[in-house]
Amino acid sequence: MTDQQRVAVLQEPERMTVETRPVPTPGTGEVQVAVRAVSVCGSDVHYYDHGRIGGFVMHAPLVLGHETSGVVSAVGEGVEEPAVGTRVAVEPQRNCGRCEQCARGRYHLCPWIAFFATPPVDGSFAQYVVVPAVRAHPVPEALSDDAAAMIEPLAVAVHAAGKADIGPGARVFVSGAGPVGLLCLQVAKARGAAHVSVSDPVARRRDKAREFGADTVLDPAEAGEVGPTDVVLECTGVQAAIDLAVAATTPAATVVLVGTGAEVTLPLDLVQSRELVLKGTFRYAHVYPAAIALAASGAVRLDAMVTSHHDLDGAEDALLAARRDPEAIKAVVRP
């Protein structure tokens, strides 16, 4: 194996280059992964467009990409599993393991967490990455490399559905039919939801929601009835969508905020008078094995969400895919 690799780097908003950098070497407790697929996330696009997401700001060139699959190509000292040659889905976060949040099992809330493609931590638009061995999750042959990369956004949906405690018979409203919304729809169905409604202002996305099993689709611009709702999974972070989602609730419903947005207001009169349970989500923890099992069972269709493939030289095209093609759902970079 060569000691150099090619890496796609965001130099500044709307300017990508491909560089040659040293191949990273795994340390104690780490594995090196030869990257096979990286699916593009909305956060990657946001950094490309603006160079920041909220308080996370680029101050130096950044390697994007965090939805990653590959093959273990080398292991560090003390690592027995996963062994070299194992296909894995990469959980792209490294926590300190010593703080109160880590001790309580909430490692995704570790104040010192390092997350791929979140400044200043480089991501996986590269040929090789190094991660803690415990964050390289073996995947079965039933999952393609593309599907294994999308275990990461599926983990977001699994974590959100767990926060909502969706069970058999639940009436669920998913606000937003982007990739995470479509995954939340499928996870809700897999958990036994009796009826799932999906709202999105884009007709093609509403069509996609139907394809992925939505019982009802709605255009938020029209005065349509959402119907009784026990659980809301709000996947946009947009004020108008949040207002619609909260208004759709029945008393004692749970509203889970999945989408990331700027400051918004909440109708506290409804939150209080209906005794709504309002929950935030931030990434995920302890859900990769469940997400992998769910995808391998066929209950969630990941490959069907892939709409284009790109090499490292086409990483910028992957980031622009959704802007150029209204039917695009997931672009995948194959280093």
Results as ranks from 00 to 15, higher is better:
2 T>L: 08
2 T>W: 01
13 P>M: 14
16 M>T: 10
17 T>H: 06
21 R>H: 08
23 V>K: 14
26 P>N: 09
33 V>I: 14
52 R>G: 00
57 V>E: 14
61 P>G: 02
62 L>Q: 13
63 V>R: 14
64 L>I: 06
65 G>H: 13
65 G>T: 15
66 H>N: 13
70 G>Q: 05
77 E>G: 14
80 E>V: 02
81 E>Y: 03
86 T>I: 00
88 V>E: 05
94 R>D: 15
106 R>V: 06
106 R>L: 13
108 H>I: 00
111 P>D: 13
114 A>Q: 15
114 A>E: 13
117 A>F: 12
118 T>Y: 00
126 A>R: 02
127 Q>I: 05
127 Q>P: 07
129 V>R: 07
135 R>H: 05
141 E>T: 06
149 A>C: 10
151 I>W: 07
154 L>R: 02
154 L>Y: 03
162 G>A: 09
174 V>K: 00
177 A>D: 01
177 A>M: 02
179 P>C: 03
183 L>V: 06
188 A>H: 01
191 R>T: 03
191 R>V: 05
195 H>Q: 02
198 V>W: 00
205 R>N: 04
207 D>H: 07
207 D>V: 05
208 K>Y: 01
212 F>H: 02
214 A>D: 05
216 T>Q: 15
220 P>M: 05
227 G>H: 11
231 V>Y: 08
231 V>D: 12
233 L>S: 13
235 C>I: 03
237 G>R: 09
241 A>S: 12
244 L>Q: 07
246 V>I: 10
251 P>I: 09
261 G>M: 01
261 G>V: 07
263 E>A: 15
263 E>L: 14
264 V>L: 05
271 V>M: 11
276 L>Y: 10
278 L>V: 15
278 L>Y: 10
279 K>Q: 15
281 T>G: 02
283 R>V: 14
283 R>H: 10
284 Y>T: 07
287 V>A: 10
287 V>I: 09
287 V>Y: 11
296 A>D: 04
297 S>W: 08
298 G>S: 00
298 G>W: 04
299 A>K: 05
304 A>S: 11
307 T>D: 04
311 D>R: 07
313 D>I: 02
314 G>E: 10
314 G>F: 11
315 A>L: 05
317 D>N: 07
321 A>T: 08
323 R>V: 08
326 P>S: 02
329 I>H: 01
335 P>S: 11
